[in-house]
Each structure stands twice: as C-alpha cells, then as structure tokens.
Computed example of a mutant assay.
Amino acid sequence: MNEFLQFFILFPFLGFIISLFLPEAKEKTISRIAFGTVFLQLIGISAFSIWWLFEGAPDLNLVELSVLKTAHYEFLLISILIEFPLFICLSEHY
C-alpha cells in the first residue's frame, strides 16, 4: 500500500513536465492537461482513501532516508519535506 503513495506525487509532476513542452499559445491544451492531472489525482486519492479505510487504516510511512535514528525515534527525510514546508506555509499566513 505504501508503494501507491508515490504515484500521487507523479501525477501532477507528469502534467507539469508535459506542459513544459507545449508552446505558450496552446493555453487551452495546457489547461486541459492541468485539469486532467488534478482530476486523476482526485480520483486516485479518493479511491486510495476508500481502499485504505477498508483495509483498517494501517499506518503509512515511506522510509526514503533516515536523517537521525536513535533507540526511541527515527527522523526521516520525508518528515523534513512535508512538515517543514507545512510549518512555513502556516506561519506565513497567520
């Protein structure tokens, strides 16, 4: 189940990469790609959430890189990439 989490990052990134190769004059096509990838993201996350809930909502954690590991705690790279930008976004708006 953890393996599917990576696809939710790839959908918008793939749409972004495709849009880079289109000329600026094709705004309608760029818009369709953007909305299409966001729609795929929505459908994918919705289906994944339902599946996750039916499986009993197990803990999901991708261990990409461990920055600090002690006997009682492991600080992962994913913690830095998610929690720090979230903190910055929340602190800038409040």
Rank of each mutant, 00 (worst) to 15 (best):
I43R: 01
A71I: 06
P12E: 00
F7K: 02
T37N: 13
E83G: 06
L62I: 15
I80K: 01
F13N: 00
W52V: 03
S31C: 03
E3D: 15
I88G: 12
W52Y: 07
S91W: 12
T37Y: 05
W51D: 02
F21Y: 08
F16S: 09
I82A: 11
S19F: 01
I18T: 10
A47N: 08
A25C: 04
L22Q: 01
E55M: 12
L68D: 06
V63L: 10
E83N: 09
A71P: 12
M1L: 11
I88Y: 08
S91K: 11
L90S: 08
L22R: 00
I88P: 05
F8E: 03
Q6C: 04
F39D: 10
S49C: 07
N2I: 08
L60S: 03
F13G: 01
I82R: 00
T70Q: 08
V67I: 15
T37I: 13
G15W: 00
A57H: 04
L86I: 12
K26V: 14
A57W: 09
I43H: 01
I78R: 06
F75D: 07
M1I: 05
S46I: 14
Q41H: 09
P85A: 05
L90Q: 10
H72D: 15
C89L: 15
I9M: 08
L40H: 01
E3S: 14
F7Q: 01
H93C: 14
I43G: 03
M1Y: 03
K69E: 15
F13R: 00
L20M: 11
S49T: 15
L60R: 05
I30D: 03
E3V: 12
L62S: 13
C89R: 04
K26E: 14
T29W: 06
T29L: 15
Y73K: 09
F35K: 12
H72T: 15
K26Y: 12
L5E: 04
E55H: 07
I50V: 14
D59A: 14
L68A: 03
D59S: 12
I50L: 06
V63K: 09
E83W: 08
A25F: 10
A34M: 02
G44A: 06
L60P: 00
Q6E: 09
P85F: 08
S49L: 11
K28C: 02
P58S: 03
L77E: 09
I78Y: 05
I18G: 06
S49I: 03
M1P: 08
E55G: 10
S79E: 15
S46D: 05
I45W: 02
H72I: 13
L60T: 02
F48V: 12
L90E: 09
G56L: 09
T29C: 09
F35M: 09
L86S: 08
F84I: 15
I33Q: 00
F16L: 13
F35S: 13
S49N: 07
L5V: 10
F11K: 01
F7W: 10
P58N: 02
P85E: 05
D59E: 08
K69N: 15
P85H: 03
F87G: 08
I82T: 13
